[in-house]
């Protein structure tokens, strides 16, 4: 085990996958001497060369589509967008082309591209550099969405995303890039994207499903509420949103009878609404109270410190938990 940050875990996962499969390539901006905008590609081009770590001009639409062509040519591209917001320019390549490759080829060809999206708040960067995009893609059949939080999960599920044969969005949060944790020196087995839900904390009175910084804030809030109320709270990190590990959540809700979901993306049309729907459809008899959502405000993200008014804080999480426990 070694203690490392999310940033280091991202870098490690790419080193491991590029070493294990020579068809894995990296595509994005500033991937050369800069090592990527966030430093996550540090050392990769020195180690694997310019033909495996391709530094592109600023053309997200072009390199998204390029990656699909390279995948059809037998490669497994990792494609980074500097900010997840910039994926708007790559939307056609992901949603219209990559997601449909397998279907339109009659199940013959696959499109093993991993689209890497550093998203969300924390950078105080305002409206065009702080959005959370998972729900934009959750409505598109053919795509998978991987969204781990801890360094160990980032390392394992990044590798799983790269190995998956289907187009996969790997979404992590910039605000938690500095989050540290224990990471195994060797990953014995790269996990499947199926059944990825993880109970990170057991409890009896409420189930909370949360990911990214919302998960970090929920953990803090839950500890406070447990201390104050004597209730115990079960917290689930789904780690993968598509395919979603429903059973993991259902099993927990059937035990606790209550559900809260939390994420930073705006509440309206957010992925949390989907989780609530699944639970209501399948666990109605066990639910003792209406599920609660704690999510981003349905508004535009302002610049600087003002962003704190948009994203759910520890206090907001605490209020949500208390509401869910009523």
């Amino acid at each position: 085990m070694s203690e490392m940050s999310v940033m280091k875990a991202l870098n490690l996962a790419m080193f491991e996958e590029m070493a294990s499969d020579e068809k894995v390539i990296c595509i994005g901006e500033d991937l050369g001497k800069q090592g990527g905008c966030w430093g996550t590609f540090t050392g990769l081009q020195d180690k694997f060369g310019i033909n495996r770590v391709l530094e592109f001009p600023i053309l997200e639409a072009g390199y998204t589509l390029f990656s699909v062509g390279a995948a059809l040519g037998g490669y497994r591209p990792i494609v980074e967008y500097m900010f997840a917001d910039f994926v708007t320019l790559g939307f056609e390549g992901i949603v219209d082309i990559a997601a449909k490759i397998h279907f339109n080829s009659g199940g013959v060809d696959s499109c093993p591209v991993t689209f890497v999206l550093p998203q969300g708040g924390g950078g105080k960067s305002g409206a065009h550099h702080s959005q959370s995009v998972e729900a934009w893609f959750a409505n598109v059949p053919g795509l998978k969405i991987v969204a781990p939080t801890t360094p160990a999960d980032i390392r394992a599920y990044y590798r799983a995303a790269i190995r998956d044969d289907d187009p996969t969005l790997f979404i992590y949060q910039r605000a938690t890039m500095g989050l540290t944790g224990e990471v195994p020196d060797v990953l014995d087995e790269v996990p499947s994207l199926a059944k990825a839900g993880k109970v990170v904390k057991t409890g009896a009175d409420l189930t909370i499903v949360a990911y990214h910084r919302a998960l970090v804030n929920v953990m803090a809030a839950a500890a406070i509420v447990e201390e104050e109320t004597g209730k115990t709270i079960e917290i689930i990190d789904p780690r993968v949103l598509i395919p979603f590990d429903k059973e993991c959540v259902f099993d927990s809700v059937k035990k606790t009878g209550r559900l809260m979901v939390a994420h930073e993306a705006p509440e309206r049309g957010g992925f949390g609404a989907q989780i609530v729907s699944w639970v209501v459809e399948n666990c109605m008899n066990e639910l003792e109270a209406a599920p609660v959502r704690v999510a981003g405000v349905n508004s535009i993200i302002p610049f600087g410190d003002l962003e704190k008014y948009l994203y759910p804080s520890v206090e907001d999480m605490k209020a949500g938990i208390l509401k869910a426990l009523i």
Partner: peptide, 19 residues
């Protein structure tokens, strides 16, 4: 693969040509 929204396949084919 062709694309419904036109323009994109020039970049897709360039990626294939790179491979």
């Amino acid at each position: 693969p062709a694309a419904g929204a036109l323009g994109g396949t020039w970049a897709e084919i360039s990626g294939f040509a790179w491979a």
